[in-house]
Write a protein that binds this DNA or RNA. Structure first.
Lengths: 177, 177, 177, 177
DNA sequence: CATGAATGAGTCTTCATTCAT
DNA sequence: TATGAATGAAGACTCATTCAT
């Protein structure tokens, strides 16, 4: 059964997404991906140089967007809102990829970006907290993690992205600040 | 030099905690644990049946506490606060174990408890949101995840548990609700 | 664009020669040969049954010449010179093939011929040494290998075969004997 | 069947030597080495970090000697003899290792040394040829290869190193120069 | 009570060869 | 006549677990 290249590539990506999402990069098995894509392991390597390359094919675009986020965002005070809006946008557009990327171990090349996003949001929150009395900047970091993990939860649990929930959740998280 | 059984067991647990915390269950290496505990791999297996058993010995107590949490907590409205207080208490008392447990994959036996805690908090929040206008119950779950992940971030980043930060963070997360 | 069979065959042989010479039989890659010949791997197999067959197509003629060498050479004393002259002739005429063949592992079918050439020269030298005092026949074999490997070195290092060097080298190797 | 570590290490080295000598580094198979040493592949790796490490354990000493040869040899004219004597000495003391090393591909880390030895001998010969009329320096390189390959042939063919043959062969190769 | 040697199934990856189109 | 997708067996290497001593 001879198949078109592009169709095969899609099948691989689909299987790989599932595998990476369920098991993370390290525990994802090329054999399992191959089985699930109904082909041999060897054939995987005709499409992707190696596991990392395959991973990159999946989360590469999102990875770039996130890497560029810092320089594409306004600096200084009041940047929390635009930043969050952008993050939600990216989440919506890259649901599976986002979850895969954010479950990657920090040590890998791709894990760095995730860390950086947390830091970016933390910084933005620090500035915001400076304005308001009552909250110490020491909670900026936990709040940043809270926000992103909360958003990820929404992502994880809805078949289609629940924009309402995201909006409401952000309102909840931010309004006090 | 004959060593007391209990002393050895402690050495193992100490090394295993470090290893599990740094690398997670899957990537933790029995050999590294043995090396760090200054003994041979074989000896590890005299004290613990296998890797999972050793894991259980570490997070077992906390695991029990969390499993019993549901029946030890008051039911009905207004249980958010006591629940959170109890969780913070447990975190403080089991810092390393908590982080190890909450970074475990959901699929394992121990992952279930973590899920259950998220659910318990979610339920409590649902009730609370019902009272207040303005927030839908659909965000109860993300808020629950936000809270716990925020707390974990505090745990992860301070050498000694920063109670102030935890308190402040909870205040931030809850006061609107 | 339909291509003539013979032209294609030549392209393959040319690429294969380069590949075999650079990497030897085992490390030569069919894919690289195909790429370098600007065709697909599958097509290679329409022209040659397999890698070994392709190898045979390259060194086949030289292989035959060398196989027949024994019966085409005069027997008895004084055959060292004509033998060496013939070898140099063949080297000049089959530079790439010669180097490919002589770098092949002894175990293969083609390795046998190489061994046989060494033996033929050894035998001729034995006779020669018997005449002269001073040299034992036990060094006939090392001298045979020395001669051929020395010639190969010349082959390997000059862009165009350096006849002077070959002549001088042979003179050096033989004059005493 | 529990065995002493050192005995096992010896068994591995013995099998590895045979395998490396027969097939060279690249084609040597860890599985075959394990089989021939009557153990599992995994166990090989308890003794040697990887294939290269195992290779190094075999030819490491000889490799060092050869690497240091240049600086341990006299400079200037008349160094051909001492150099050859030293080479023969090393050959005698490291028969199997020598043959393994000299059949290694030039590209590897260890292949460099072999090349260097050929060059060292070539240089020494160039000087010698400058003195004598009649031979051009262009044959220094082929003569160097001839000498070493001739010596290797002796090594390869005798069960115990045939010192007489080596001596005689060198006399044959050198006396004219 | 402890050692550490050994196993075996698993991992990613490569490549000559085949075959549907 | 040619393509290139797919296969399958092999390669080096890792690691939790067992067991003889």
């Amino acid at each position: 059964m001879q198949v078109l290249k592009e169709e095969v590539r899609q099948r691989i990506i689909k299987s790989a997404k599932k595998e990476f999402r369920n098991n993370g990069f390290d525990k994802a098995s090329m054999r399992d991906i191959a089985d699930s894509a109904k082909m041999t392991v060897g054939n995987l390597y005709r499409y992707y140089k190696n596991k990392e390359d395959m991973f990159g094919a999946i989360i590469g675009d999102l990875y770039q967007e996130l890497k560029d986020l810092r320089k594409n965002m306004p600096e200084g005070k009041g940047r929390v809102s635009p930043l969050l809006n952008r993050l939600v946008e990216l989440q919506k557009a890259n649901k599976a990829e986002w979850l895969i990327l954010f479950n990657t171990t920090k040590s890998s090349k791709y894990g760095k970006v995730v860390e950086d996003i947390y830091n970016l949001l933390t910084e933005a929150l620090v500035e915001q907290f400076e304005e308001k009395k009552g909250f110490d900047e020491s909670i900026a970091k936990p709040v940043a993690y809270a926000i992103i993990n909360g958003l990820n939860t929404i992502l994880q649990n809805e078949r289609k992205y629940n924009s309402d929930a995201a909006e409401q959740f952000l309102e909840y998280m931010i309004k006090t600040a």
